[in-house]
Design a protein around this nucleic acid. Sequence first.
DNA 1: TATTGTTATACTCTATAACTATA
DNA 2: TATAGTTATAGAGTATAACAATA
Lengths: 156, 156
Amino acid sequence: MTPQPLYGHPACLMTRLGVHVEAHLTELLVPLGIQPRHFGMLSLLIEQDGRSQHQLAEPLNVHRNVMVGLVDELEQRGLIERRRHPVDRRAHAVHLLPAGRELHAEADAVVTEFEAKMLGGLSAEEAATFVELQKRVSEHVGISHELHPGLRGDLR
Amino acid sequence: MTPQPLYGHPACLMTRLGVHVEAHLTELLVPLGIQPRHFGMLSLLIEQDGRSQHQLAEPLNVHRNVMVGLVDELEQRGLIERRRHPVDRRAHAVHLLPAGRELHAEADAVVTEFEAKMLGGLSAEEAATFVELQKRVSEHVGISHELHPGLRGDLR
DNA sequence: TATTGTTATACTCTATAACTATA
DNA sequence: TATAGTTATAGAGTATAACAATA
């Protein structure tokens, strides 16, 4: 059997697309003064406010050491705030401030517009299928894109 | 309108999946002593032998400075070889050696097996659709996953 | 004993610029 | 003047380990 050409490999397509998205998103968010990771943080806090840094780090796929810096940056800009964690005195509860909520809305619009362009070559139905299949694959390989039930509600 | 949760964003899914694939592929290729990029190089040379370093760098999305090191590594292992370029004396023609062809076959098997597992949650039809849509999106955003017609055949 | 957050260190990776030899 | 390849340097980014406070 003859080997596949490079971009016949789904794996190569996926890494290439991932790099493409990351790079463009980074550029598009420069005017807002944040990076994709910061957007991710804000998004997670919109979903559930008051998470610990550890709880934020996991779905963002960054180490807790790095998270310190990310939280520092957004806190210094008055977008989020570290408060005392209600049940774990080791942890900080990270809370969204009004300015953070506003910036997130702007960033979300930028990201959404980018996605629309990126998927512009597909019909609405195809795009929906594409996203759906991506979610299925993500789940299958163990990427958590939902809040884990165990992490929802109680702040342990 | 309420903003999307983080992984409702196709863009976030794609970067996350891309990182996942890159990381796992890197691990899986360690026993073969190469990285995903090296696999990409070998794949491109299988498609068309004797490309210049510049011609290899573009589809791999690496700078020509970096390409120097990649070619060095594979050449020192006797997998590829720099020869005089037939029509451009500034350039090197990078050629695949038998050992390189063999290693590529092994690596290709590893990658293919990984892809099968990754897409194992989808039916065959769904997997085909997924890959097809990825190619469509790649093309739409300007990622070249085919040899550019202008680069095929003549070695300019 | 394990975990959260933090800091410092070392390491890797990358981007930039500069140089040569050709075109 | 522009391009292919090369090299060196500096900067960014990352991983590792260690520590204090708390569980």
